[in-house]
Write a protein that binds this DNA or RNA. Sequence first.
DNA 1: TATATTTTTTAGGTTTGCCTAAACTTTATT
DNA 2: AATAAAGTTTAGGCAAACCTAAAAAATATA
Lengths: 216, 216
Amino acid sequence: MTLSEENYLKSIYSLQREHRKGVSTNVLSKYLDAKPASATEMIKKLDEKGLVRYQPYQGVLLNESGEISALKIVRKHRLWETFLAQKLDFSWDEIHDVAEQLEHIKSDKLIQQLDKFLGYPKYDPHGDPIPDENGHVIKMEKKRVSQLQPGDTGSCIGVNDTSSSFLQFLDQQNIRLGSVIQIVNFQDFDKSMTVRIEDRELILSQIATENIYVRI
Amino acid sequence: MTLSEENYLKSIYSLQREHRKGVSTNVLSKYLDAKPASATEMIKKLDEKGLVRYQPYQGVLLNESGEISALKIVRKHRLWETFLAQKLDFSWDEIHDVAEQLEHIKSDKLIQQLDKFLGYPKYDPHGDPIPDENGHVIKMEKKRVSQLQPGDTGSCIGVNDTSSSFLQFLDQQNIRLGSVIQIVNFQDFDKSMTVRIEDRELILSQIATENIYVRI
DNA sequence: TATATTTTTTAGGTTTGCCTAAACTTTATT
DNA sequence: AATAAAGTTTAGGCAAACCTAAAAAATATA
Ligand SMILES: [Mn+2]
Ligand SMILES: [Mn+2]
Ligand SMILES: [Mn+2]
Ligand SMILES: [Mn+2]
């Protein structure tokens, strides 16, 4: 499998949660920073290889073997992120881009030994579960901060937006994995929320509250 | 710089020691398992980019900026080899192919932190010196076993042939970095040598003695 | 020195992955 | 239901990195 095929599979995997009837070429190409025509081409190729189900104009979904392949790449990505954060002192926002490259290194032994070296971690530094060797992932019961009510409390287990600027913002505000977030109140006019984090109150925009995941 | 450009630069770096007047397209293409026509194309491209000096029919040599680039890749390759051997329990012969992929990962911070994590190693698992951040390499006074006389003793510091089959052979014979090798005698008819390694005597072929480096 | 052999380059193709622009299909609006 | 808008596919190109086969240059041999 080529680097590009792997990136498409992984993207379809990420997108099909929220696009149950099919990931459109538009959505997919935007996610990958490419043009819709390029997505169509690649999708057709993956379809011919038996990794996805594709009906013209109806979007694309992984089939079983496509999902197995995608999960292998997700596993590698998350193990490398864990390595970068735990062993090489990379910060939350620096790990993603490098893991994006490392996930494509081909060596079964490498990933097996890396897993062992890290002590078989269950979650990556963003709080996302790491698939095991057989592609089994822990399903998490996670909510967005935006779905909580005033008075509710949750602990941060991950993010949706993994952009550097967002992760840096969280770092600056001292919001990290495990941080306990309590909703103080909700402003209707702009959907922002006042939250309490470790004795400190701050206002999070709608965009922010929609991109932070918590477990209650 | 593309992956392919990096591989060509690194190959020219390795070959120009023994091809002082210029690395021919024939030699270069054979080393890279490609066709001479492909080497010519890439050399012209590297020349246009100002990384090598190339005169048609006269072979190619790195210029200063080409050598700096090549040394960066060599540094990455050897640091990754050290990581694989020391931290992930890869054996001597397994590390090369994976490092061949890892050396192309682009991140200054990654290589800096990896160096730190490994404790700023000076030599890789094959005994080759690791260039520092500024591209400075320790010049080693190394001899091939084949250059020794009966009675001479040396300690193994590296190999020339890095093929799996050779490294596996060395593993089987318990020849590793630091092994003390004493020449017992020399057979003129086939240039083989009887050597003593830790109380054990064995016969090494000419090919073998030419591919093991020692420090006296 | 003339000829043969080897080496190197050039010319023309192929594959992968990307693009733009035009054509087509689906969905939304009147 | 007809038309407009939006989304998708197709057609035709391009760049990188490889290839084969033919032409050209360098080197070896007679
Ligand atoms: Mn990737
Ligand atoms: Mn992650
Ligand atoms: Mn390489
Ligand atoms: Mn090495």
